[in-house]
Design a protein around this nucleic acid. Structure first.
Lengths: 128, 128
DNA sequence: CAGTATCCTCATTGATACTG
DNA sequence: CAGTATCAATGAGGATACTG
């Protein structure tokens, strides 16, 4: 296999992921951020309330959950529905667009979980 | 830090990314880190030398490229081959395992690029 | 319940210099 | 060429307290 020569034009045509200016990088960062992907995957199983998400996604803080949900809502991946009751009741659901990204993210996460044993066993120091 | 009380055994048994103890979360972080995914995608087109990767992935520093490559090598996704010559010649290639993850990451990036217009047009402030 | 507001820590990253 | 070493800066993220 040889190192292949790739022109700038070819790079741009293949995709703008290698470019820092393209907004696609931002979206990619959102869905692959520390919590973004987990929120998307969590919502795949249906509508969740804020506190339900917090319990499900271990280790996430209130702040980061709120922030992540806002970003994903901005991107049109998550729909937020607030019921005007006391105490407050807010539901989060994936939009059709969100379901699609979530599926891609989940495919990645699933692959990792499926192959986790194989991966870990190859790591240095693995007892195997 | 850990506001919920879930035993370690419980989390490990779930074996899911939602557990902050499960190693799968670390692997997920590696391949979705700022540079991890880009390195994987870059290597999909074949073997690359260190400097070739640096040129291809615009904006990455030597330090971060070296660090990212080491992590991906530890995970068994990237194979490093050093030829004992002067000046040094080192080649990086995806392992079979690495090719599989890379495909998933690429699928995600591709989806975003394909749907970028749709996503952006729904965002607040879009001229549409 | 579902957040905000504030403050603060520390991990990630970058710049620069150096080396086998 | 392919890194490592060191230091500095940024900002993502966490703890806590408070509110509609």
């Amino acid at each position: 296999m040889q190192t292949q020569h790739v022109t700038l034009a070819e790079q741009l045509m293949r995709g703008e992921v290698f470019s820092d200016q393209c907004p696609s990088r931002q979206i990619l960062n959102h869905v692959t951020s520390r919590w973004g992907g987990l929120v998307l995957i969590a919502l795949m199983s249906g509508t969740h309330r804020f506190s339900a998400l917090r319990r499900k996604i271990r280790g996430i803080s209130e702040k980061m959950l709120a922030q992540t949900l806002q970003i994903l809502e901005q991107d049109g991946f998550v729909a937020r529905t607030a019921y005007p009751v006391v105490p407050p009741h807010v539901e989060y659901t994936l939009t059709p667009l969100g379901r699609e990204v979530a599926r891609k993210v989940e495919a990645l996460a699933d692959w990792i979980e499926t192959n986790l044993h194989e991966i870990l066993s190859r790591r240095p120091g693995a007892t195997n």
